[in-house]
Amino acid sequence: MENLLEIKNLTVKYGTYTALQNANMKIGPTDFIGVIGPNGGGKTTLLKAILGLLEPSSGEVIFSEQLSNQKTDIGYLPQVNKFDSRFPINVIDVVLSGLAGKRNWVKPFNSANKEKAMQLLTDLGIAHIANKPIGQLSGGQMQRAFLGRTLISDPKLIILDEPGTYVDNKFESELYEKLVQLNKSKAILLVSHDVGTIFAHVKSIACVNRELNYHPSNIITPEQLASYNCPIQIITHGEIPHTVLGVHNHKHHH
């Protein structure tokens, strides 16, 4: 099947500092890729490059024709602490804002849009707070509202940046269940420091530590991680059947 997008020889520099060096990756239509790596290793830089939020120093991100429609084909769930939670906006308006795209920013939302937003809120279990200002939500409700914004445009690729932070365990497990469902028809790129949880759900792993190493399965050994130059802490999760991992003690270059 044709890839949704391809990252080709991508290098991103901030001034003289190289955040990402010669990264290559392809994302297929039903991929579920977990992005791991140390803090400051370039995970966010990779996401921003895909979202077009920064200019690469060299290389490029090539989008397939399937993704060309107004950028609404990419759903993006940013880290929840990036928002001004006291901004005067209601839950339903947050969800509806996910429909805005390149050439679609003057026309008001119609009743079909609003019905779709309400349907999503019902699915996410927060229909009762549709007209509440976001300042009155709990962390889990907030993350659900933003997931609604991510999904309303029916994206072909969903990008999530640390969706497990600031939320209750119940929502976290619901979220991963939902992602597995969505993954039947959509590609997912998931950034998380919670490696144990990631490995249980993703199909492949990208280790980002200035370089990008793509690992085509969710089973990864400490030795492989070491060869990817990906110094992250791994915790053994016995209950996860596919992934048995030891704590690694290798020395790495930072």
């Binding site: 939020l53 950028k71 993006y76 906006i89 308006d93 804002s97 390149k102 920013w105 008001p108």
Partner: peptide
């Protein structure tokens, strides 16, 4: 009156608005 929706989006979440090429 004309750009209310866009102004709200940009004010609330500038990065998301940029990701959508607004």
């Amino acid at each position: 009156a004309i750009f209310f929706r866009l102004i709200t989006m940009i004010s609330f979440d500038e990065e998301f608005a940029r990701a959508r090429s607004l």
